[in-house]
Simulated assay, not measured.
Amino acid sequence: MTESRPPAVWFTEEQPRKPRLSRDRIARGAVALLDAEGVAGLSMRRLAARLNAGAMSLYEYVGGKEDVLDLALDAVMGEIELDGAGAGGAGDPDRPRHLPWRDALTRQLVLTRDAMKRHPWLPALMATRPLLGPNSLARSEYFYSVLDRAGLEGPRLTAAVGSLTYYVQGYAATENVWRGLRHDPAQEAELRERAQRFIDHRAADHPALARHAQLANSDFDGSFTLGLETILDGIEAQLSH
């Protein structure tokens, strides 16, 4: 019986071949194609054409489209600079302890959101693909080590990492969709003001919304920072338990 191939490209080592192609070159080509066309526009045929290679030659390096997605995802994760490292580097494992834990995590999450804005396909892939590439693992190690040194452990540490990760993924995904639909600032401002007036006129039925909703607010950066601070406050409260 033929053994089924591993479920992730990271479970197989790249075999040395002539330098015409490589996993690194495939990853860079895939990132460019994903940025231009999105996940739906990525195919082995189109990627091969971008790399000026035959489609079948790609299969000497990867098992299929899912492997390509994993390589592209990890290549972009390498753009998120870790403290004490250049882009893509593993960094100094002792560096996180030199930064206040909130500052360290805030910086990483701001950089992660920036990467997700540059590559709008990234949030969905992070939620659906195994984050086992070297750059992804280095980033995860950084988060776990920072929170470990802050005093969290076990399920609370894991929950904190998940809360931070899911927050930035969800925020960036929503922001990307909105920005993809709203290109005219004046039209966006008008839509937001109309939505706010709509709620204000229904204050009797929705008093909490009328008092607190700020639908006219288009400050994505400020809202992101405030939401992140709220989550970090919750994590900090766990440190005394």
Rank of each mutant, 00 (worst) to 15 (best):
A203F: 09
H206Q: 14
D219T: 00
P185W: 01
Q214L: 13
A204T: 13
L209Y: 15
L191G: 05
A213K: 09
L209I: 12
R197P: 05
R194S: 06
S218V: 13
A189D: 06
R192I: 00
D200R: 06
R194C: 09
Q214P: 06
R211T: 11
A203I: 04
R192T: 01
L215A: 05
A210S: 03
A203D: 08
D219F: 06
D205S: 15
R192G: 03
D205C: 08
A210R: 01
F198C: 11
R211Y: 11
P185K: 02
D205M: 12
A186N: 02
N217M: 08
E193V: 08
I199F: 01
H212C: 12
F198G: 13
N217F: 01
H201E: 15
A216N: 04
R192D: 02
P185H: 03
I199P: 07
D219Y: 01
A208V: 15
R197E: 09
A195H: 04
L209S: 14
A210T: 02
A195Y: 08
L191Q: 11
H212D: 12
R202L: 12
A216R: 11
A203S: 11
H212W: 10
A189H: 05
A208T: 15
N217D: 06
A189R: 02
L215G: 07
A189N: 02
P185I: 03
E193C: 06
Q214Y: 10
A210I: 00
D200P: 08
A213Q: 10
A208M: 15
A186R: 01
S218Y: 07
R202N: 13
A195D: 09
R202W: 06
P207S: 03
F198D: 13
I199M: 04
A216C: 09
P185C: 01
H206D: 09
S218K: 06
E193W: 05
D205Y: 13
R194Q: 08
D219K: 03
H212N: 14
Q214R: 10
H206K: 09
R194Y: 13
A203L: 06
E190F: 08
D219L: 01
